[in-house]
Write a protein that binds this DNA or RNA. Structure first.
Lengths: 339, 339
DNA sequence: TTGAAAGCGATACCAT
DNA sequence: ATGGTATCGCTTTCAA
């Protein structure tokens, strides 16, 4: 604990060469004789030397580190995204600095400032809860950002999203086709842009079917189980005519199932419930959830792929990858109406 | 993108002072007049200056960054640990470098090497899959390590664990009391030390009850749902007399439930199933899982607390925090035998 | 092919 | 209270 770490000069001294030569041997750069490199690398191994990435980053202006900002790493959606991103980043030689924004815009700002100070090479920003002007103001000073589940703030920006409007539309068509007419929407956090897009899909489906929009059936909710319980209880109590609930995500949907149980509403007979994401839980609850499956690991991997592209200067402009979710029909909202 | 970042000298020049003075203003250190500090800070704000943590870390030998190594961040156990750790770290002014070891010892080694090169101030190592000698060999050169769910390799080391043996013992007593006699054990990854301790609890309970040990009823399994399906199917097919399964974690237990369904064994009538961890899923499957509840967020927070202590030189020796899991009885293994 | 020297951006130490 | 200078560990640039 008290002994100084071995540094490049130690290696150089031991090998009887200069530190630049050691650097060359390590980075496969510049001309260097095969035997010198061999000898140096041997000593590197013997001494257990590891280059200090801080020092290296200071001069190269590259840290080989990416920031990953998520609203809640304990949310299975984001933990899968994180896994996909970590794996892709690792593969490309990057490390990941994890920031949990706790669904709090203030905290998210802090995270971005920290990442800026840490000089990460890029930032993977998932489901930002920041208001558009704030986000845009920040973007100028930050390293390259790739957005997940959020409209790119400028056209010079990569993004990866689940096609939320498409998903909500598909879910609504399914519900309407099976005879539901009063579909409540648990729309997620007010600041969530996926929530906004799902709301748009909800509205579009009603319009398409020539049904009246009832904005009062749309309520925001926290993006977890408890949020679903609260939101669904409020909606069903206030508007007993509701015969279906479209939910912000599967956790919320499970909360909705519990709320229905608490209010003695049968699922799917009285109320159909549809979730979003198809987390492992979805297939295992009773009744199993009808939901929209999204490939979250892929989303994480795509974030990294686009980031690497951005770090090379966006040759060929920016991509906005859109992943289509797939409707998975299970018992909580079956095809033939059981009402 | 093309303009150089503002650095401490820019601020100094603008303020008409030396860079040391700026440093003092920023770090609340050394003597500095109130008005000078005010002026400097004002300019810092105006220029949007953020100290480069690389440069700072290079000289202070502190990066204010901790490494977090987990076998699988998508596993709800570890994503909750990560959340607890991130929150505590953030509160203490530390960032978290996330490494997903993918349940692979080779990859775990790599992660540790990377963290060493990144000069993290400390490493939170969760459920290491490394063999003891390898781990010990590494420990000498690494920054302080706090272990989760693993026996400390040396006495000069902090650790936080779930009391796995206690948990397994409690679960076994519960099963035996309710009349089960042939309890299969899905023991988790061979390299998992929690798995080993749970196996010990399983054995201890049998001995305590004067029942014969049947090592063939103990099989390793991958720590996720599929692992549970495979392991349980193999066990139940080979030893049809099994009337209860103690599972490495809740995901494995859910897999076991599915295996039982596939083999037409009723739960709990024919086979009782007990999980570990009490993840949210546990209460929601059918039948709801009897399991051992552990406070994973707390575990993460404790890891950080002990790390901070270690970074201050372990005054008062090292702690080995043991968190007792709590038996939660649900329908998959009820108190009165329904067999 | 190799080495000497400059510099990345901050802080520590010693003067003043 | 403030500034000068060395330094952290590495890469880059230029000479030899």
């Amino acid at each position: 604990m008290n002994t100084r770490r071995v540094n490049i000069s130690d290696v150089a001294r031991e090998a009887g060469v200069s530190s630049q030569t050691v650097s060359r041997a390590l980075n496969n750069k510049g001309e260097i004789s095969v035997e010198t490199r061999q000898r140096v690398l041997e000593i590197v191994r013997r001494l257990g030397y590891r280059p200090n990435t801080l020092a290296r980053g200071l001069v190269t202006q590259k840290t080989c580190t990416l920031g990953l900002v998520v609203p809640d790493i304990a949310n299975p959606f984001f933990s899968e995204v994180a896994r996909g991103a970590e794996d892709a980043a690792h593969f490309a030689g990057y490390s990941l600095l994890l920031c949990n924004a706790m669904e709090d815009p203030e905290r998210e700002m802090e995270a971005l400032r920290t990442l800026e100070a840490q000089r990460v090479d890029g930032i993977l920003l998932c489901s930002s809860r920041l208001a558009a002007p704030k986000l845009e103001a920040l973007l100028g000073r930050l390293p390259p950002v790739v957005l997940a589940n959020r409209e790119p703030a400028s056209e010079a920006m990569h993004s990866v999203s689940i096609d939320d409007e498409f998903g909500a539309l598909a879910a609504m068509r399914h519900l309407l086709r099976s005879g539901r007419r009063q579909v409540g929407l648990l729309a997620g956090p007010p600041a969530s842009s996926s929530g906004a897009r799902r709301t748009a899909g909800h509205r579009a489906a009603l319009a398409e079917a020539g049904l009246p929009a009832r904005p009062e059936l749309i309520v925001p909710c926290a993006p977890h189980l408890e949020g679903g319980v609260e939101g669904a209880t409020a909606l069903l109590t206030r508007y007993p005519e509701i015969d279906a609930l479209l939910c912000y995500n599967d956790l919320v949907a499970v909360g909705a199932l519990q709320a229905c149980a608490g209010l003695d509403r049968r699922v799917p007979e009285d109320v159909a419930v549809v979730g979003f994401d198809d987390i492992p839980l979805a297939a295992l609850v009773t009744p199993p959830l009808t939901t929209l499956r999204s490939d979250r690991r892929m989303l994480g991997a795509e974030l990294v792929r686009l980031m690497l592209q951005a770090l090379e200067g966006c040759p060929g402009g920016c991509e906005n990858v859109v992943l289509k979710p797939e409707l998975i029909v299970r018992a909580s909202a079956p095809s033939a109406s059981a009402a």
